[in-house]
Simulated assay, not measured.
Amino acid sequence: MENPQSNMANESLPTVEEDAPSISGLYELAIGATAENEAALIEYWQQFGFSVGQSGTLSATQANQLYGVNSSLRSHRLHNQVTDRSLLRLMVWEKPVNEGLGLTPLKAVGSRWGTSLSLDVFNIANHAEDAMLLWSRFANAAGLPVYYVPPQRNLIYRPDPFQPFIQANPCVHEMVLIQPLTRQVFFERHDYTRPNSGIVNPDSHFKASEFVHAGLIVDCDHEKLDFYDQVLGLRRSTNNSESKYVEASRRILELKGPENGERMLNYYFNAPLTSSTDKTQARSGNFEVLRFEGTLINKLAYSRPGSLGVCLYTMKVRDIEEYYQRVSTSEATQVTQVYENEFGEKSFSFIAPDGYFWTLLEG
């Protein structure tokens, strides 16, 4: 979701030295699939501007070493208009471990999703509404089930007082679209731009961009999230901040509120070498971590490689051996050795202190 508070916080943070070991923000959002739905998923993502750029395979033994899944693997790397970050990886498993997150709403531990800009979010909403109606009416005859939250308007930097038709009215319309194998948030900007964050493929049917943000829901202690900046070196721009979301965002996230024993805190992490003092130069590929204090269902086992649907985030690092040493001596668990992934890149995987599975690759 578009996060004005996080971007404002970026302005007061120092830059990182150019010779420091670097890590990207989001490099890939990965989706688990089977051979039966492989072609349909590629066709689906083509409507949002993604195209296959690279493919590769691993044997069951190799996949077990790197991802902990005893199944052969065929993967496709897809990109939109951006080729160095916010890509999509389709991981086709011969023997999937489980059905994945399915139609679980965003608010669950283990929930992952990609947020993209669209120039026509209401067109996506129209398709989602019709898909849901067709599914309920014809009971599986017209496609996959759909769970969605229709577009909600959120204000971004609106002046106070505000004069309609005289002053700019910066805002977004945001919506949620969840299907058994995909979890997406879309937003459309009005009256403001960020040219390097959300680069739309104009030839795509839904006029959609790369992933501007990747989302995580956690219920761990605040200190466990120190791993992302203190060990991995990401740049924290919002920290343990209680989100004062308006009613529109409460609907998106299905928040009950503190009066019902539920409290949400916001964290935002950026790639260290891509942050800018000029918020108009903000780049895509950031992580939005939402930490809940309250009772949530735990779906972490359905949100890791081998699961169907959204199952993994990857990041690129400049020196894989240095990052291996950092992670293996931290509180991360199940740290693998460095192996070649399905694309021939040096990689290793681990579980972060908050319970999420990650893969780093050198590039």
Rank of each mutant, 00 (worst) to 15 (best):
N196E: 13
F287E: 04
P96Y: 08
V200C: 12
L87G: 05
T57P: 07
G198A: 11
Q47T: 08
F187G: 01
V218P: 12
L101T: 02
D160E: 14
A128H: 03
D160F: 09
S209P: 13
S349M: 05
Y147A: 09
S55M: 07
A108G: 04
P258H: 08
E18R: 13
A282V: 02
I23Y: 11
K207G: 02
D191H: 13
T329V: 03
R158C: 07
V218W: 04
A332L: 09
A282G: 05
Q65N: 08
T238F: 05
A168E: 14
Q163S: 11
A63G: 05
V146S: 07
L90G: 05
L255I: 06
L155P: 01
F138E: 13
P4Y: 09
G363R: 10
R263I: 01
T83E: 14
S118V: 00
Q167N: 11
G309F: 06
N341E: 07
R158N: 08
E188F: 00
E322H: 10
V121F: 03
R85N: 06
E94Q: 15
T61K: 12
C311A: 13
F122V: 01
T333R: 15
M91H: 08
K256Q: 15
G114F: 09
S6I: 00
N3V: 04
T295S: 15
L296G: 09
Y356L: 05
V16F: 14
P195M: 09
G294R: 12
L216F: 15
G285T: 00
G49E: 04
S22M: 04
N7I: 08
Q81F: 05
L177P: 00
